[in-house]
């Protein structure tokens, strides 16, 4: 798209994309560090992740202030309006992603006080899938790539299926060896947090579609198996 007649407006919109990109990078890094803390049983790293969450919160706050300012001073319409509203929404999604990452780190601190349990690797396996999805959606945002966003949107089914499998695996493990119940319960919550990060990536995909095309993604999202509730 061509530039605005008023150049400072373009700079402000670019700045907004920039903050979101930084926030996305930060959320990704927090998530990766939380997973490393889990796999390496590194309590120092986990503590740093927990402490680092405030920086993501600060960026979200910055996005909020900046978008309100743009709305008030520029009275944006059409694609500019969608750009600004999308940034506001995506910043809250990323803030949630970072929250879940911090929660994974917190639980890994607890796990480090217990003997290691085998299903950790299965949780990491789920996490790597979600990491990929998160990376893809952040790339799609920077490139304004709708096709990529739709692919991310469709992949949430994989996450749901894997999560359901993991849930069953953890229950089996706990039944076989009740001494692992505390550790496995923490892992189960971690898995839930990680699955939620995937949901937020899906939300970003929907927002990105609205940003670029101006309409919601069409059709029902394929839904994976839901967890047995009995």
């Amino acid at each position: 798209m061509s530039d605005h007649t008023v150049k400072s407006y373009d700079e402000e919109l670019a700045h907004l994309t920039n903050i979101i990109a930084r926030m996305g990078g930060m959320a990704e890094a927090q998530f990766a560090a939380a997973l490393q803390a889990l796999s390496k049983r590194d309590s120092d790293l986990a503590a740093r992740v927990v402490a680092g969450d405030t920086r993501v919160d600060e960026l979200e706050h910055e996005v909020q202030q900046f978008t309100v300012r743009l709305l008030a001073l520029r009275q944006p319409v059409a694609s500019d309006l969608r750009h600004i509203v999308a940034a506001l929404k995506i910043s809250s999604e990323l803030e949630r992603v970072a929250d879940y990452a911090a929660n994974v780190a917190k639980r890994s601190l607890v796990l480090n006080h217990m003997p290691p349990v085998k299903p950790v690797s299965a949780v990491l396996h789920l996490a790597h899938l979600v990491q990929e999805i998160l990376k893809d959606i952040l790339d799609a945002y920077i490139e304004r790539d709708v096709d990529k966003a739709v692919r991310v949107w469709n992949r949430d089914e994989e996450v749901d299926d894997m999560y359901t499998g993991l849930f069953r695996e953890l229950i089996t493990y706990m039944m076989e060896d009740p001494r692992t119940i505390t550790a496995c319960t923490h892992l189960m919550f971690m898995a839930k947090n990680i699955e939620r990060i995937g949901d937020h990536a899906t939300n970003i995909a929907e927002t990105l579609h609205f940003l670029v095309v101006g309409t919601p993604i069409k059709g029902e999202r394929p839904k994976g198996n839901t967890v047995d509730t009995e």
Partner: peptide, 19 residues
């Protein structure tokens, strides 16, 4: 028109991108 104009010229005009 003001949230999702279909024509690039409309888009350009209302967002202030007009040459």
């Amino acid at each position: 028109i003001f949230t999702n104009p279909q024509h690039p010229l409309t888009q350009g005009y209302i967002t202030g991108r007009f040459g």
